[in-house]
């Protein structure tokens, strides 16, 4: 089964994202910050990561840098999630190695569409 890790410091967002992903028949896991997310990845590398970009402990860039150093760390597709809609920020994140971006709040249609984009649906 395809695994998606949801990384977000908001418990509500994690819950919503997991519910949508599970409806779409993905196996999900969650982490509330980048450091814990790296632990999850070390235990089991997911196929995709829904990544909040502005997390308190370790932000999206730092997380991605660390992730890509791990064995198998190139595998997950990264969908970065943000509440901002700033072109420069989106461009920076894409440049840093994200595959897609999604703006919060999102719904099932958007999540499905983004997963199609990265080839998981």
């Amino acid at each position: 089964m395809t695994q998606v890790l949801v990384v977000d410091d908001s418990a509500i967002i994690r819950k919503i994202a997991r519910r949508i992903l599970e409806d779409l028949r993905f196996e999900t896991a969650e982490a509330e910050d980048g450091a814990r997310a790296l632990d999850c990845c070390a235990a089991s590398m997911p196929d995709a990561i829904f990544l909040d970009w502005n997390m308190p402990v370790m932000d999206g860039y730092e997380f991605l840098r660390e992730l890509r150093k791990m064995p198998d760390g190139a595998k997950p597709k990264i969908v970065f999630c943000t509440t901002e809609n700033d072109v420069a920020q989106i461009a920076r994140a894409m440049h840093a190695g994200a595959d897609e971006y999604i703006m919060k709040p999102f719904d099932r249609h958007i999540v499905q569409s983004k997963l199609e984009e990265i080839g998981l649906v």
Binding site: N85, I90, E116
Partner: peptide
């Protein structure tokens, strides 16, 4: 709208062909 550009449009194409216009 944000919703419309998030359906079917890959982000690289959004960045290449669109500009922000308010929301």
């Amino acid at each position: 709208s944000q919703f419309e550009v998030q359906r079917g449009l890959p982000t690289p194409l959004l960045l290449r062909h669109f500009q922000r216009d308010g929301e």
